[in-house]
């Protein structure tokens, strides 16, 4: 690895640096506000390393949740990662010992960068990808540590900071509402959640909501796939 490649990796990851610092700091402050200090923040950012999931983990730690619900909610929130992996099968081939880390560190942002960044001339792509993945996690760990230390030193009124999680999901939802080929899945997700909330109550809503959702997806497979394909075809014709 040389200096030029390092500089290229830094400049490629600057947008992620800004994003991870901010979201990481908010995570650290939130975690600190429920009584878990920087050691916990560091542990979570080193071992879980998934933004949305860590926000939900704060919620889990503060309210308590049955282990089966914890497992299911983790599976469902992270199921999008499976799609990411599918498109990285080739890229990660031949990465040897670093492949495990590349898979572990495949966050939304790292996935986006690996797909969009061009490898600098003469650089080994595998080393460059590894560097990007490593830098991104470093930003994330730094952000969460800064947040939790700041949260413990500066005693400001943190009431309402947990809204950062809602805001994060609203942003992703808005983004998908604009760009996803069909809005049916999003509407179905919200519908199932509301239905489960009303029928089963807020303590027990997760499992039934997700089961109903999967069931509906099986029932509506043909119409939804038609919509997806129609959109794909229209884009080809354009």
């Amino acid at each position: 690895m040389n200096k030029k490649m390092f500089q290229a990796a830094i400049s490629a990851t600057i947008p992620v640096l800004l994003g991870y610092l901010t979201i990481g700091i908010a995570f650290g402050v939130m975690l600190e506000s429920i009584g878990y200090n920087y050691l916990w923040a560091g542990l979570m950012s080193l071992t879980i390393y998934a933004g949305s999931m860590q926000y939900v983990t704060v919620e889990i730690l503060s309210k308590g949740m049955r282990i089966l619900d914890v497992i299911l909610i983790t599976l469902f929130i992270n199921c999008r990662h499976m799609v990411y992996g599918l498109s990285m099968l080739d890229k990660f081939k031949g990465m040897g010992k670093r492949k495990g880390y590349m898979i572990f560190s495949l966050t939304d942002e790292t996935y986006a960068l690996l797909n969009s960044t061009t490898v600098p001339l003469g650089a080994n792509p595998k080393t460059f990808y590894f560097l990007i993945a490593l830098l991104n996690q470093a930003y994330w760990v730094a952000g969460s540590l800064i947040g939790s230390v700041a949260g413990s030193l500066i005693k400001f009124n943190t009431t309402g900071i947990d809204f950062a999680m809602t805001a994060l999901f609203v942003v992703i939802c808005t983004e998908q509402w604009i760009s996803y080929p069909t809005r049916i899945p999003a509407i179905m997700g919200a519908f199932c959640a509301l239905l489960a909330l009303i029928v089963f109550g807020k303590q027990n809503m997760i499992l039934p909501a997700m089961l109903i959702l999967i069931l509906l997806f099986f029932i509506a497979k043909n119409p939804i796939e038609n919509k997806l394909n129609k959109k794909a075809n229209m884009e080809v014709e354009d």
């Binding site: 469902f76 929130i77 999008r80 996803y180 899945p185 179905m188 919200a190 997700m210």
Partner: peptide, 10 residues
Amino acid sequence: LPPAVIALLV
């Protein structure tokens, strides 16, 4: 699933 789960989480 991804867009549906995000709406569910909201």
